[in-house]
Every structure is written in C-alpha cells, then in structure tokens.
Amino acid sequence: MLNKDIQINFAHQQWAHCETGVLSGLLSYHGLNISEALCFGIGSGLFFGYFPFIKVHGLPLITFRSSPGAIFKRVTRRLGIIVESRKFSNRETAMEALDRVLDQGIPVGLRTGMFWLPYFPSHFRFHFNAHNLIVFGREGSDYRISDPVLDEPVLCSRRDLSRARFAEGLLAPKGTMYYVAGIPTQVNLKQAILMGIREVCLTMLTPTIPLVGIWAIDHLADKIRAWPKRLGYDKSKLYLGHMIRMQEEIGTGGGGFRLIYAAFLQDASEVLTDKHLHDLSGKMTLIGDRWREFALHGARICKGRDNVENSYDILSDILHDCGHMEKEVLREIRKATS
C-alpha cells in the first residue's frame, strides 16, 4: 500500500509537444541538457502522411509527425541513452512498479490516454492514447505530474492515473512506463543530429510507400480540390476541421511541426557550426507560415465565411506550395549535410 510522500526535485517546463517535452525533461533531469527542438530533429520527427483508408472517428488519418514513440526510440538510440521501459497486463502491478521507481527518487515517464486525465481542459479530452507525461512525486493518494503541454505541474489521483494508463482502443498504452537508467559520459551530438536530418530527408524525399512525404502533400493537394464535389460541402468542412486540428491543435508548436523543425535547424547550425543550415532555418519558417495560412483559410471555410466555389482551389494551391517549398528546402538540407 501507499507509504510516505515523495517529492523529486524536478523542474517543470512547458513545451509544445508531449513526446519531445517528456524526453527533454527526463534527459535534463539526468544532466543532459537538450532542448525539445533538438530532440525533435534528432528523432527525425518531421513527417507527412495521408492515409485515407485508416479512419480516426470516421475521418482520414493525416499526420505531420512520425508515429508515436518513434522519436523517443531514435533519440535514445542515437545518443546512447539507456532507458528502462515496461508494459503491464495488470493495473495494480503497474501502479506498484511506478511507486517503486518513484521511491528511488527517479522521475518516470508514462504513456496514457487523454480521455481519462481529469486535469485537461474538457475540449481536449478525446480518446487519444499516445499522450506522454512525467510523474515526479506522490502526495497521499495523488501523484505529482509534470505534463509538458501544460503551464504548471498538476496533481492526479491514483485511480484516474491508473485508468489513463490502461486506456483502450487504438494505440492502447497498456500501462507503459519508462525512465532513464543511464547516460553515457560522452555524447556524440553532431553525429546524432546528422543521422536525424538524413532520415527525415530520406522519408520525405524518397518515401518507401507513396502515402508519405512530399508525394503525399501533393496528392492531398490534388484531392482537396475535389472534396466539395466528392464529399459534399458539409463533409468537406469536417475533413478540413480535422486536418486543422491535426496540424495546429495537438501540441505542434505551430505549422504542423514545421516551426519546431526550423528551431531545430538553428540549434543544429550552432552545434555543427554550419552557417548554411541557419539560412535554411529561415526558409523552413516560411514553410511553417504557409501551413498556418492553410489553417486560416480552411477555418474560414469551416465557418462558412468564404465563397465556396474557388476556396478549395486556393487551399489546393497553398498545399502544392508547401509541398514544393519543402522539397526544395529538404534537398538543400540534404546537400548541406551529406
């Protein structure tokens, strides 16, 4: 049963995204100061995928980042960090295992469903199962939680937390918990950054399947023009709203992670002392801004303020632009880092 209170001296910091935020928080606690943007870049987070046949609440899967957990795995592998990670089949065992690690004074990362976390604003409580957070203390039957997408640390009851850890459905977390068990004395940051960049260029420019990368952006740009005819106005609006939420709502830092990646390029140019990457960061910022224009126009259509006849054509043009610009910039990045 529960024993004494635990308070780990963990400094909460708010970040844009949950996975990279947790990663940056845990690594900083263990003495490896590394920003969220660097984590995102080293983990090759930048991505685009359009999977019309995979439906989320009846809407096509559109994603701007690589699959949940992938960034975490790549960063820890590329930096040589040892991570203990466990899944569970039983709620009680899972909570006891969490307690045991906390007792040793180690902050723990958890994968949870968002729906069961009571501290979230009600508008975000969907059945989304790949949310990450850090537990850094215990007070009676409550846990101290540093949720990287929130302004400040929060408390969550043992019952609610165990529910969230065993959320069901797509990507069910099955109580997943993880913590840093060892950090190498020497970290080869340069090499890790280069590996991160190369993988992004590879998946975005020469994808293995024709549903991801620049190809998918262009494909979606072609499709979107026909949405009002093919789906009807009401459903097109739904699709658009869904896409805006994927792009801007779920902790993307703006512009579907393109702005985080621009920040990463700045950090990378410092580490690699490569002035050219700094200039390319500026171009990446323009791409992020163009994506945000897409969201702005899309939302106008959702609200019904735009003349529908050609507004989808405008959206299509913006998307083609994004695809074109990303292709150019990624090619230059590839050249600069090869």
């Binding site: 943007a37 709203g241 939420r245 709502e249 621009a262 920040a263 960061s281 702005l296 939302a299 959702c302």
Partner: peptide
C-alpha cells in the same frame, strides 16, 4: 527562435468547436 505561450488561435477554436 523562442518559445512563446499562446492562449489559443481562432482557426483551432473553430475546428475544435466544430468537432
């Protein structure tokens, strides 16, 4: 680049209310 707290963006509000 800096990290700036934002209290929201209208297009996101619109899309979320729609959902």
């Amino acid at each position: 680049y800096t990290l700036v707290p934002s209290s929201g963006w209208e297009p996101v509000n619109i899309a979320n209310y729609q959902a």
